[in-house]
């Protein structure tokens, strides 16, 4: 859980730094990125229309109104799960890469065809994991697919893999009720890109249709901004990993 939230925030963060970025919703039939980005009423055409030649990219891409350089390519609402073909996806990605610095692909859940389509052409994969047994296991399976069924793997190359742990709750970790960052890092053994705390700001942001990274007062917004910085090689210490000790004043105020 948290893939769409993460795609929206990382994509927005890349654009904020001046890089022309497009976020593609690969969740055919369950379009949601448009809602999270607050552009649901501006959707005219979608990814499948472009693949089928019913619309061109210029007509289909939605330009974000808040952040320059940011575009969204919405998923189709069709029930036909096979609407995305590998050749079709490749054609669209090739065309986009002529114009864009970054293409963020928001994968659907699971490890089936839809997810495999979203990761096939990847140069880098951000594996979004929750500190919870089934999520960690699924992430390891996705890593297996990246290492065997992606285009890079087929060519004998490697997809760069990054771990993003989200919905992290330091209180529960301290109580011994939740896997810690260290636990998950040890099991998956890939580089840690970021830890996003469980936070009400995420719900608030999705209610408003604004990616949480734009809420720069919130801890989860800041954690996403840090993660984007790390993508550019900045050395930023991980924050929000420990239980916030309430200061005297805060305690007094009952905050």
């Amino acid at each position: 859980m948290g893939k769409t939230t993460t795609s929206a925030s990382i994509g927005t963060g890349l654009a904020q730094r001046g890089h022309k970025t497009v976020i593609i919703d690969f969740d055919v039939g369950l379009r949601n990125l448009d809602l999270i980005m607050g552009c649901e009423r501006r959707v005219v055409y979608d990814f499948v229309n472009v693949i089928n030649g019913e619309a061109n990219l210029k007509q289909t891409l939605i330009k974000d109104k808040r952040v320059d350089n940011l575009y969204i390519l919405p998923a189709s609402q069709t029930r036909d799960k096979d609407a995305l073909t590998q050749e079709g996806v490749e054609k669209v990605l090739d065309e986009l890469s002529e114009d864009f610095d970054f293409i963020v692909c928001d994968s659907p859940a699971g490890i089936e065809r839809g997810a495999q389509m979203a990761l096939y052409f990847a140069d880098m994969a951000v594996v979004v994991t929750n500190p919870e047994v089934s999520s960690v296991r699924d992430s390891d399976r996705i890593l297996g697919i990246l290492q065997s069924k992606s285009r890079k793997a087929e060519k004998g190359e490697v997809v760069e893999e990054k771990l993003l742990l989200t919905r992290y709750n330091p209180e529960r970790v301290e109580e011994g009720e939740m896997l810690s960052v260290e636990d998950v890092k040890e099991i998956l053994a890939i580089e840690l890109l970021g830890v996003i705390p469980e936070s009400e700001a995420v719900l608030k942001a999705s209610n408003q249709g604004s990616p949480v990274i734009l809420d720069s007062d919130s801890n989860s917004g800041q954690a996403y901004a840090d993660a984007v910085g790390r993508l550019f090689g900045e050395e930023i210490e991980h924050r929000f990993l420990d239980v916030e000790k309430k200061g005297f004043f805060k305690r007094l105020m009952g905050a």
Partner: peptide, 22 residues
């Protein structure tokens, strides 16, 4: 042992097994 450490141990076993198989 805390439930998190039980989770970790179970995950380590199943993940190692599945990787081996892959």
């Amino acid at each position: 042992p805390s439930s998190a450490s039980v989770a970790k141990e179970r995950l380590q076993i199943i993940v190692a097994h599945e990787r081996n198989k892959r």
